[in-house]
């Protein structure tokens, strides 16, 4: 037994979960979605063990290279999904969401990602690494759920407008309010992890809390897009399509902060 077997088992469980979710989507049998959820949930449990295992084995936080970080992002996404699904029964989002998670897991297990745990460079040896990365990625995970529900909103809305009345329990209206709910949960987490903890750590490690490094700037951009979402919605009464577009752009910005900056732009953050 080791971490990679656990990781692989998790991956398989997620794939099975996606399989059941998709069968639910085509057959409309609620039972299948329930089974899908169970597999996703057991995947989450094994994944948790895998992360703990990795932490104990390497002696440091399980997100110091791209493989670890992707696996952790997949974990927090599933966690966010399980919470939202549990509260709001958004079963129909399951299949699409599992696709994102599977994509993350597949990327993580691609041969391009070095798997071995390497010793930490001095700048990463800090408990702020834990706080900064875990809280930020958890926030982004809720943005990911909002991303999926926003896309589903756009589809459902066009269908309902064409006259296909809201047959399923997951109406466009409900999708819209669930997107908002996810952003309302994710926004404080992202601000706390990405901005506040990031600034504190940067101050401890480099002596400056803000240096307009591309990764910092991009997390600010992400924050601003979601601030735009909130203000247009809360103060100006936007809803529906326009809100959905902003939420989608927001998640893409978060994704770019997470991936794009590392591979396309360079800066102080380039080691992580």
């Amino acid at each position: 037994m080791n971490e990679s077997i656990l990781f692989f088992t998790t991956f398989i469980l997620y794939i099975i979960s996606a399989f059941f979710y998709f069968s639910f989507l085509f057959s409309k049998k609620e039972n299948l979605a329930r089974i899908g959820f169970k597999f996703a949930f057991s995947g989450l449990l094994i994944h948790t063990v895998a992360l703990i295992w990795r932490t104990v084995e390497s002696g440091h936080a399980p997100f110091t290279n791209m493989y670890e970080s992707l696996s952790f992002f997949a974990w927090s996404s599933i966690l966010a999904y399980v919470i939202i699904e549990f509260k709001y029964k958004i079963r129909k989002a399951g299949p699409y969401f599992m696709l994102i998670v599977i994509a993350l897991m597949a990327l993580a297990s691609s041969p391009l990602m070095p798997k071995e745990a390497t010793p930490l460079v001095p700048a990463l040896q800090s408990y702020w690494l834990w706080l900064h990365v875990s809280v930020t990625l958890l926030g982004e995970a809720f943005f990911a759920v909002a991303f999926i529900t926003s896309i589903m909103y756009l589809v459902a809305d066009s269908r309902e407008k064409k006259g296909g009345a809201a047959k399923s329990k997951l109406s466009a209206d409900k999708l819209d309010s669930i997107s908002y709910r996810c952003i309302a949960i994710g926004f404080p987490l992202f601000t706390l992890g990405g901005l506040v903890f990031g600034m504190i750590w940067a101050y401890k490690a480099w002596g400056r809390y803000w240096s307009w490094d591309p990764k910092e700037t991009w997390s600010l951009i992400t924050l601003f897009v979601f601030a735009l979402y909130l203000h247009t919605r809360v103060v100006m009464g936007w809803k529906g399509r326009r809100s959905a577009y902003v939420a989608i752009i927001g998640f893409l910005a978060a994704l770019f902060t997470y991936f794009g900056v590392n591979y396309i732009l360079s800066g102080l953050h380039s080691y992580a």
């Binding site: 951009i221 601003f224 735009l228």
Partner: peptide
Amino acid sequence: IVLLIIITSTSLIGT
């Protein structure tokens, strides 16, 4: 909203 959009896009150019 206008300022947020301007500041966001100029920050983006800077990266």
